[in-house]
Every structure is written in C-alpha cells, then in structure tokens.
Design a protein around this nucleic acid. Structure first.
Lengths: 252, 252
DNA sequence: TCCTCAGTAATTGTCCTACAAATTCAAAAT
DNA sequence: ATTTTGAATTTGTAGGACAATTACTGAGGA
C-alpha cells in the first residue's frame, strides 16, 4: 500500500450498527452473525440468558439489550419460559444493513440470497443510473467517472472492490432517492461475495472496466436512456456469472 | 360489518415489531413514532433516561432496551455524557418495516417520503408482476385475480384497501424473490397515506379497478411482458395522482 | 480578548440482585 | 385417554450501585 496516489477508493468501513462501541454492540454482532451464518436453524432455541452471560462474559443487561436489538431486526422471537428462538427466514429484515452484512460471504448456504440480491440489482440499478443521469451533481458525475476508470485489476483486489463499490454507491446516491440509496448495502454484500468466490479472468476484467466506463460516460452526458441500457447490459452479464457461480457453489 | 361474505380481504395487522408484547415494545413504538413524526428534529437530544423513566412510567431497564432497538434501526445514536440524539435522516433504516410504519400518514412532512416510495414502486413492481406471471402458483394467481376483482368502492374503504394491498402483496410474494417480497411494507404505507389524503372520484375508482384486473389477468395468463406493461401503466397513473397530492399537501 | 488546560459535573454503559409473570412440562386425578 | 392441577423454568421488569466517557466550566496565561 505504498502508492497512495492511485488508491483513491478504499473499502468503506461497514462495521457499524448504529450502536455505540461497547459490549452490547459486540454481542449483537456476535449473535447476529452466528444466527445469519446458520449456526442455529430456524426454530432453534438460543442458549439461555444466563448461559450467554457465562459464555460471552458479559452481564445479563448486555445480553438482554443485544437480544432485543436482534428481535427488532426480526431474527429472533422471545417469550417467557419459551426462550429465544430463531424466526423463520421470511420474517428476517433482509434489507436491514446489519442483517445483509452478517451473511457469511464464504458460505455456500447464502449463495441463494446473493442470487436474489443480484436479481434485485438488475431491477433497480438501471433505473438508478437513468435517474442519476438526470439528477447527479457535477461532483457526483466526476466521482462516478473517476471510480469507473479506477477499476484496475493491477491495483489489488481491495482497491478494485473499493472503486467498484464507490461507482455503484455514488450512482444510487445521485439518483436522488434516499430509499434507493440505502440499497447500496446490498450491493456491497453482493460484491464481497462475488469477489470472494470468483476468480475473474483478466479478459473479463477488461470487459467489466469498459462497461463501467461506458455507464459513467452516459451518466456524465446526461443521457438517461443510454445509462439505463448500459447498466442493464452490464448487470445481465454480471448475473450470468453470478448464476454460474451459485450453481457451482451449491453442487459442492 | 354485517356482510362478512364479501369482505374477503381485511387489513393486515401491521402492528408488530418482532418484540414480545410488553413494556419494551410499547416504549419502542412510542418513541419510534415520536421520532418518525418529527417531534425531535435531527440532532435533538431525547429526554434523559431517568426523565423517560418518569414520563413513561417504566423502569430504566425498559427504557434502555427500547432505546437500543431504536439505535439498531438507525434512528438515534447514544454516547456517555452525550445523550441520545436523533440521527440525520439519511442514517435511518428507511426500509425497516417499523420505521416505514411509524411515519405519520397524516403528516404533510412525510409527503416527500411517500413520493420517493412511489418512485420506488414504479421501479420494482412492474418487474415483480413480470416475475409473478412466470413463477406464481395456481392459488397465488387465484388470489391475485380475486383481490383485483374485490376492489369495490361500495364495500367501504377499509375493505377496499385490504383487497388492494392483498393484490400487490401477493404479486410480490409470487415473484419468488424474498427481498422483493419484503417491500410490501412500503406498499402498505404508501397505500395508507394516499387513501388517507386523497378522495378519489368514482370514475377514477372504476379505472383503477379495471387496471388491477388487467394486470391480474395478464399474470394469470402467464404473459410476463403484458403484466409488466400493464402494471407500469397503472403505477404511472398512480404516480401522477401522488405527485398532485404531494404538491397540494406541501403548499399548505 | 482569546486561548489552553485542568477539574468537575452530567449522562450513558455495565454489573448486580430480587422478584413478577407466563408457559412449558410432569404428575395426578378423573 | 383426557383433563386438571401444580411446580419448575425462563424471560420480563424493577431498582440500586458504580464505571467510563465526554461536555462544560472556570482559572490561568499569552
């Protein structure tokens, strides 16, 4: 990491719930990840409060506050004499930034989720690009262009994901729709997964970069139609790769 | 409510966080609504824990657990000696079912949010309809058809919203994409808002019903293209009305 | 007047204990 | 076999004590 000049786009620090740093936050993260990773199947009973107190080395107060946060995200349900049980997957707040982040990028179990997320991206990102072409500020257009051009495989994978993420996130932001903008968490998760699981070949990388720049230029030019079309083409290609990837991870 | 026969589609009971009924849940709801309603502007300091203890008549334990849940949804941030402060709107988990539900349907302040939500619907619902045309089960197709046909103004507004909601929710569910399906919370909120604020004229109602049935029939026939197109047309009309509505509520 | 720095006060974070409430589970009675 | 009663278990609520951190205050100096 000596050539700071080129490494404009660092990976965002997506490690925050909005909770203050401390024991509660750590406990939420710990339990949230365990549940999202599937350590407890649906309907399973979590360890009792006093067991968690022992195993995690925190007070009951902390354990309870953490569990309440997880309830709020739909992961578990509690009742007297009933314990804390994992909710059916449908009840999870799948679009919650934390829940998204807690999925294990390395687990084949979550491949299905990322397939769905990829489908979702295919739905809203072309529209976001079209909106960005109309609504983006000058500096946003510049950022999008710069990020697209910064997608160099040579700069190392981390820097590359950083630029890739910045590209997509800025487009969402530039759409002017805040709800749309919040879906960047989803993109980030998908990105981590696909980069972790796939090894793109250099020619594929080259195509990917050209596509990104194409979209960026369309947005910069204010051509909504073109931006939408190019983004869609890019994601269709992306999805094809993702499907192949999911199929291979699932059959293992 | 004597003619039970016709009132197939009741309004869903969207009053639940996943928290158990009790003091904590009540406190979360109470504070969540107050914040979402704008009683505390961005950056404002909530009453201290012990003040809330007094004013709400619950123990500090309850207050703290409730506040932690709200932190988890991005509404507030806490720190020692800093108090609990309302986060900037961008940080809120706008797609959280509770946060969506907490917005005041009667407040002109939230009109902007519903405008964004309407835009979002215009993006993903046509695609959901297309997916549903391919993926829906037999019973789902039946439900969608029945709900569309049950949109009768004469049956009373509640029954009408119920059918309208069931129509859209079932389509999302039938898309086969769980993340997409969770956006039904958004639809529900938009629906409550627009029904609360607008008085559609009977001719408009008639058009609305015909449109719904048109979409349902396209889905039933498995024609993805047609379903997408009809849903889009319907929502464009919807958005036009919504924009008019937002403009009028904002200028007051 | 403005700035720096130390001290103080205020506020949430964590730990603890005790009891209440609800529900499962088992045993007993019919 | 079914119902009922009761006891055990688990989370829910209350309240007190102290720790940790940070905002605020005021004194001192430039």
């Amino acid at each position: 990491m000596d050539n700071k000049k080129r490494n404009f786009f660092e990976l965002p620090d997506k490690a925050l719930t909005s909770l203050p740093t401390g024991a509660v936050k750590d406990t939420v993260e710990h339990l949230g990840k365990k549940i999202a990773h599937g350590d407890f199947p649906t309907g399973a009973i979590l360890p009792r409060e006093d067991e968690l107190v022992d195993s995690l080395g925190v007070s009951r107060t902390v354990v309870r506050e953490a569990i309440k946060v997880l309830c709020g995200k739909g992961l578990i349900r509690t009742a007297r004499r009933y314990g804390s049980r994992v909710c059916p997957f449908d009840d999870w707040n799948l679009l919650d930034p934390d829940v998204i982040r807690w999925h294990d990028p390395k687990s084949p179990q979550t491949a299905r989720i990322y397939a769905e997320a990829t489908d979702l991206r295919l739905i809203f990102e072309p529209e976001a690009a079209a909106l960005a072409a109309v609504n983006a500020s000058r500096s946003q257009r510049d950022t999008i262009l710069a990020a697209a051009r910064a997608i160099h495989p040579l700069d190392g994978q981390s820097s590359m994901i950083g630029a890739d993420y910045m590209f997509h996130a800025t487009i969402l932001q530039a759409s002017g729709n805040q709800m749309l903008s919040q879906l960047q968490n989803l993109i980030y998760a998908v990105m981590l997964f696909s980069y972790a699981a796939s090894q793109r070949t250099p020619p594929e990388e080259k195509v990917a970069r050209r596509n990104h720049v194409g979209v960026a230029e369309a947005i910069d030019a204010g051509d909504a139609e073109l931006a939408r079309g190019r983004m869609k083409d890019m994601l269709v290609l992306n999805k094809a790769m993702a499907d192949k990837l999911v199929a291979s991870t699932l059959q293992e």
